[in-house]
Design a protein around this nucleic acid. Structure first.
Lengths: 231, 231
DNA sequence: AAATAACTTGACCGAGCAGTCAGGTTTGGT
DNA sequence: ACCAAACCTGACTGCTCGGTCAAGTTATTT
């Protein structure tokens, strides 16, 4: 490890490499992928500092030394877990594109983000934990890729506003609030479950949350008309 | 520490106690209070596991052994920091009471929560971090005090709905979303700042966030009329 | 089937950790 | 002035941690 200049993603992926990189790599790749998936809950529940190599080894089913062989350091393992999650986050906003109607686009986006919260709660928590602690491991991601993505989506929303399809709102803050509302069902599930008096969040709670988020956003932005109730 | 049956809040506060509990206690109390305030940022940035007694000692200006004298264990110190924050959280919802109009009540609540996010970001982060990791240190608080508070506020909102002052929504989920939207400006400030390209969140960002949250909630719940723009 | 690279592992190591303690100092009561 | 009790602290301790390593085993190429 003293000879490696820097731990760039390439260098990490290339840790066990020789000249004959054939089918044997696949085995390693599979083990690495499985380990990353199994390490996710550990980092989610304990954080980077709280997760020990012993607990990670137990979760992955590999001996500690073997984890070090594949990933080098705990930080590297953590960085790769984090990297796996980022792709997910960037993809979620696909439904927000110029050709779409704002109503269907936001509905789809909210549904997609809530699906992640339901199906990959640990990924969401690892991400939330990282940002909570200052996002030191993904400063560049936030300032570059995510920022570009947000600029792109903000432009789409600006377009809808210009076309009179929705009220004038700050598109970036709208995205921040969408993230907050959808991720709260993953990140703060223990709080929501405790307050509701249920052991864990189920389909009902997600459905109720989704309905309310959609209502607040679509009516709040003047996309849907107000309730047919009165007036 | 072996003689103490359990670390109840009383037992913790009573750590350094004799028969003559007079004015000398005050000095200790002041030191403890100041230490709790200074420990907050450390726990916020590093989490419970990541915060070391050495870093806490440096932050409080006390020697490590002295911290142990006043608080016993790191967990006890953390628990007291957490407890200090809970009162804040319960008080924030004062504006939501039966006599109020929903519009002014929600406006005031959003303003109050965002004030906490701006002025006590570390408190918010410690709380968020605790819940993110399963809320093991405040299960009872969530299930009892907070749950009661939420039941109480939910009843108020139900009342407003019954009076036709706002649309029918799930009041509990509305509170969850209010928490999520207001706390995101404290807990995920590094993400928001990075995406916006600013070094740190300022008054502008909080104002923009507040305006949008108010708009989404009041129009989304049918309290405010839709924009006077078109239609 | 021999050679070689990839992979695995138990045992080991030094650093840093939370917590302890004996002995000193300050403080408030009398 | 004297005495406890409260408070303070440097030095110490046992342990857990991340990381290393040499000696294995397994798989693939030729």
């Amino acid at each position: 490890m003293q000879d490696s200049a820097q731990d760039s993603p390439e260098a990490i992926a290339a840790l066990p490499v020789g000249k004959a990189a054939g089918a044997r790599q696949n085995r390693s790749v599979r083990i690495v992928q499985r380990s990353l998936a199994r390490a996710e809950p550990v980092f989610a529940q304990a954080g980077l500092a709280g997760a020990t190599m012993a607990s990670l080894a137990a979760a992955t089913g590999l001996p500690r030394a073997n984890l070090h062989y594949h990933f080098g350091t705990k930080e590297n393992l953590y960085a790769q877990v984090l990297e796996n999650i980022l792709a997910l986050w960037l993809d979620a906003s696909d439904s927000i594109h110029p050709g779409a109607e704002p109503g269907t686009a936001f509905r789809a986006y909210i549904a997609a983000k809530l699906s992640y919260s339901r199906d990959r709660p640990f990924a969401s928590k690892v991400f939330a934990n990282e940002i909570l602690h200052g996002a030191v491991h993904l400063r560049s991601y936030l300032g570059l890729e995510l920022r570009r993505k947000v600029d792109e989506k903000a432009a789409v929303i600006e377009g809808w506003i210009a076309q009179g399809k929705m009220d004038r709102v700050d598109p970036r803050h709208l995205l921040f609030l969408l993230w907050a509302m959808t991720q709260t069902y993953a990140d703060f599930d223990s709080q929501i479950a405790a307050v509701l008096g249920v052991p864990a969040l189920g389909a009902e709670q997600f459905a109720a949350g989704q309905a309310l988020i959609v209502q607040l956003v679509l009516r709040g932005c003047g996309i849907d008309p107000p309730s047919p109730k009165e007036r």
